[in-house]
Amino acid sequence: MELQQERQLPLPRDTVWDALNDPEVLKACIPGCESFDRVDDNAYEAAVKAKVGPVNARFKGKVTLTDLNPPASYSMSFQGQGGQAGFVKGSADVTLTDTEGGCTVGSTAKAQLGGKLAQLGSRLIDGAARKTANEFFDNFVEYMGGSGEPGETAGETAAATVDSAATAPARSQAWVWAAVGAGVVGVILAFALL
């Protein structure tokens, strides 16, 4: 499966970059995201509860970054296990470009889905991925727009921020988080399946 997403955001690229710098933003904005942790220099783990219609599955995913070219582009590979539901594995190329009135985040993801999700849900995969990506960006814009509450996860975010503050990366490592942020978009693109 190949997924192409492009989303124009009414926000300056730097702002988006900085926001994606914050894992708590991502956790708050990724639909169904339950956790989001750094496990190694270029490796991160996320837990996402994907829900499409009557079907739900909890995925644990790993994201590894490659070909980093801050602040414009990078690639990543990701894989996630959803227990009975199956698994997802793939890679994505992400770009941030300045556009009029803001910036555009583009992502081309290649994903392989396996297990029951692939056997049962092929008709819904593209639509679910598109929907999840849209929800992420909607949440993101809303979050950045200062309207404050991107849904229920906001409360949890506040609590979790304290933790992450202790281990927050130095400013110079901002690009790492940005990459991970978009990377998780890739993951959820692929997660959002059935």
């Binding site: 219609g53 009557p54 079907v55 739900n56 599955a57 009975q84 539901a85 029951k116 049962l120 059935l194």
Partner: peptide, 13 residues
């Protein structure tokens, strides 16, 4: 008609 199939496949709990 949708939910039962999901339950049987253990894709909903």
């Amino acid at each position: 008609q949708t939910l039962l199939q999901s339950l049987k496949q253990r894709l909903a709990q």
